[in-house]
Amino acid sequence: MADYQETLDLSSYAALGDSFTEGLNDPGPDGQFAGWADRLAGMLSARRPEHDFRYANLAVRGRLLDQIVAEQVPKVRQLRPDLVTLCAGGNDILRPGSDPDLIAEHFESAVLELRENAGTVLICTGFDTRNVPVLRHLRGKIATYNAHLRAIADRNGLAVADLWSLRAVHDRRAWSEDRLHLSPEGHQRVALLAARALGLPVDADPEAAWPPAPVLTPADQRRENLQWARTFLLPWVGRRLRGESSGDHVEAKRPELLPL
């Protein structure tokens, strides 16, 4: 893990991954999605002398790990940033018949290459899906993958943003309407967690208590779940059956290291 002084010396950051890192459902001021990685870049830039900080976000929604390795990891050889974040494998885990052991092997191969071309590498574990309809059945696979990620981090000296243990995201308000992507406040909580994993002093606690929320009746919860299934779950399943991805024809929003 980087210490405070080392974090202050970070002058460039490249974020790799899928929709989670692209920042889906966190609208930014420029009309693009922002997300936790953009928010982390802002925190790092604010602590840089003269704000001479450069940031690239190569993440694209829907990308599988092997696609990230083929499309995004090689770009890091050119950029050679001080910091890289790699959060990947979640879309693979969601696929029927996927093997978390094999996915982890591919992940570590990517990490080894990134370490040769970046100063610091931070990875993220997967979220605990125990309270998420449908996805709760994948909790065991996610836990297995997370155990591998922890071991990979230990072997290779990586910083880890442990999303599995982030209790704040168990609150429904941490998620957008589709229940697959974070809300703006959820992205902010993850950005704070990642900053803390890097040794950056933060001005808020990612685990801060949420304000009291209205309590839904069982009937309201059923209606909400049915509406979610019609609006989001069925179209998502349909894309999987057709072999389509939400990231088809989507390009990285910040493919080069540019000042914020």
Rank of each mutant, 00 (worst) to 15 (best):
A14C: 09
D220W: 00
G243Q: 08
I68G: 01
L114Y: 08
V202Q: 10
T85C: 06
L258G: 05
G119S: 14
L64T: 10
A151E: 13
Y13K: 03
G89W: 02
E71T: 06
R61Q: 14
L86F: 03
D248V: 15
W236L: 09
L149T: 07
A168G: 14
V73P: 03
T125Y: 11
H187D: 15
V237P: 00
V84T: 10
L257V: 13
V121N: 12
R150D: 11
S109H: 13
D92L: 01
A104W: 04
P255G: 08
R240N: 02
A252C: 14
F53K: 01
Q72M: 06
H181G: 07
D26W: 04
W164D: 03
D203K: 03
N91H: 09
A34C: 09
R196C: 02
V190Q: 14
V237N: 05
T129E: 12
H181L: 08
L180P: 02
P81T: 05
P211I: 08
Q221S: 02
E256T: 15
L114T: 09
A229V: 04
R63V: 06
K253I: 13
L192V: 02
L192G: 05
L83T: 01
P74F: 09
G243V: 08
A88T: 07
C87G: 15
A168E: 13
E113L: 12
L180G: 06
L182F: 13
L192R: 06
S45D: 10
L260T: 11
Y145E: 01
T144V: 07
I93F: 02
P259I: 08
K141D: 09
P206L: 00
S245V: 10
L216H: 06
L138N: 00
G199R: 01
A194W: 07
G157K: 11
D26Y: 00
R47C: 01
E207M: 01
T129Q: 13
D171H: 14
R240F: 05
G23A: 05
A2S: 11
P29F: 11
R222Y: 04
L94G: 04
G247P: 04
R239N: 06
A41Q: 04
A168W: 14
V160Y: 09
E177N: 07
L8A: 07
R47F: 01
R167Q: 14
H148M: 00
S11E: 10
G199W: 02
A14Q: 03
A118M: 06
R254N: 08
V132W: 15
S109F: 08
W210K: 07
L64H: 09
F232K: 07
G31N: 10
G35I: 11
Q67Y: 01
Q72D: 09
H181N: 12
S98W: 03
R223Q: 15
A174Y: 09
P49D: 03
F127S: 04
H106Y: 00
G17Y: 05
L166F: 13
A209Q: 15
A14T: 13
R196L: 02
D92Q: 00
Q188N: 12
L10F: 13
V132D: 15
H170D: 09
L180S: 11
S12V: 01
R150M: 13
P259K: 09
R47H: 04
D66E: 07
L241V: 07
Y13Q: 06
A14D: 03
G247C: 05
R61E: 12
Y145R: 04
G35Q: 12
L58S: 00
R48C: 10
A168K: 13
V215P: 05
A70N: 04
V237A: 14
L258C: 08
Q227V: 07
H170N: 05
L94E: 08
T144P: 00
